[in-house]
């Protein structure tokens, strides 16, 4: 089905006959063209128009390649100064001193990784729970509203999440959740120091809220694509519903779920505005989750427009380059995993 329109793409346009016939008719000696064929070849407009139409479409789709390449090259060329000055050490040094021109990205890498993984730690179990509930347990009448609500949440802009976090989440963290965590889990050493409400943990929580809809809706799609015969088979062997979900559904879709989680990770790594508003923006590495931090994206958002000096600017662009490459790799792996699972499923185009 998929190859048919291509083989007939240029020829069938000229002819009212189905494509298979055209293919053989062209091969046949053309000594005595039929009146129909003569009429059609007189019209003659089809081939050129078709070719140029296809070319324009191809050009537009190639522009996607061009955009990615262009971003890559422009980031490299603009960060050359810092690439030459610091080399690979840029990513392992802690210094961030615009005054003396000494730059290293380690605090930002730490902040990004810490918030993203913490956000995943919070979001993944919840997202799995929601997906299991939506696909396996939920009464049919509830399914649509909950799905709609989660999609609505995906449409809320990042800056609005940030606004909410600043005025609602930060006070909660400062006054109730933070002291509670200090009292119960203070011995681990992760909840030490003064708690201002802004910091790594607050950023992680808002990130978790933001990536939850992404992960749960993808996981739901993947679990829906598990064939029903699997479920029925496991149930017929006498399994309880949880055993059915575990062996019949989750095990079959695990690669896809990992892919969905990776996509969530990609989103969390690059998330800028909400995180910038609540992370505290302080380039320091500290074990405590109450401590203010800094991420790759938020340092760009905060300091880019006031970066004085070429080296400062190119160090910031190099951070952008690192972010670009990391998210591309994470997304590529995630896409391949999701694709590997949903490939065989019906009613999906790709």
């Amino acid at each position: 089905m998929t190859t048919e329109p291509e083989s007939g793409s240029t020829k069938s346009a000229l002819s009212p006959v189905p494509t298979e016939f055209v293919a053989s008719a062209v091969e046949a000696p053309v000594s005595a063209p039929s009146p129909i064929r003569e009429f059609l070849s007189q019209r003659g407009s089809g081939r050129l128009a078709d070719r140029s139409f296809a070319a324009v479409m191809l050009l537009c789709s190639l522009s996607i390649f061009l955009i990615v390449l262009f971003i890559f090259f422009i980031l490299i060329s603009r960060s050359k100064l810092s690439l030459l000055a610091f080399g690979w050490k840029f990513f392992t040094r802690q210094a961030w001193d615009p005054v003396s021109g000494d730059f290293g990205a380690l605090p930002f890498i730490y902040g990004t990784l810490a918030t993203s993984f913490l956000a995943l730690l919070i979001a993944v179990p919840l997202a799995l729970g929601v997906a299991v509930f939506l696909t396996e347990l939920c009464p049919r009448s509830l399914r649509a509203p909950i799905s709609f609500l989660t999609e609505l949440l995906a449409a809320i802009p990042s800056v609005v999440y940030g606004l909410w976090a600043v005025f609602v989440l930060v006070p909660i963290m400062r006054d109730s959740l933070g002291p509670f965590l200090y009292k119960t889990l203070g011995w681990t050493g992760f909840f030490e120091g003064s708690n201002f409400g802004v910091g790594l943990l607050t950023a992680s929580i808002i990130l978790a809220i933001m990536i939850l809809p992404v992960i749960s809706s993808l996981t739901r799609d993947i679990m829906t694509s598990v064939p029903n015969s699997q479920r029925e088979g496991v149930l017929a062997l006498g399994a309880t519903r949880w055993e059915m979900i575990r062996t019949g559904v989750l095990r079959n879709s695990r690669i896809g779920i990992v892919g969905a989680v990776m996509l969530g990770l990609g989103r969390a790594l690059g998330e800028t505005m909400a995180v910038t508003m609540v992370i505290g923006n302080h380039a320091d590495i500290s074990k405590s989750l109450f401590a203010p931090g800094y991420t790759l994206a938020s340092v760009i958002a905060n300091e880019f427009s006031e970066a004085t000096g070429d080296l400062y600017l190119s160090a910031l662009i190099e951070i952008g380059l690192a972010l670009f490459l990391v998210t591309i790799v994470v997304n590529a792996i995630a896409r391949l995993m999701v694709w590997a699972v949903t490939r065989g499923a019906p009613a999906r185009a790709a």
Binding site: I71, L269, T327, V330
Partner: peptide, 21 residues
């Protein structure tokens, strides 16, 4: 595949590349 990957590129990166260009 490239389109999917481009979809995941952080928006801030888009901002600084257009700024540079």
């Amino acid at each position: 595949f490239t389109a999917d990957v481009l979809n995941g590129v952080p928006s801030i990166v888009m901002g600084i590349s257009i700024y540079s260009l």
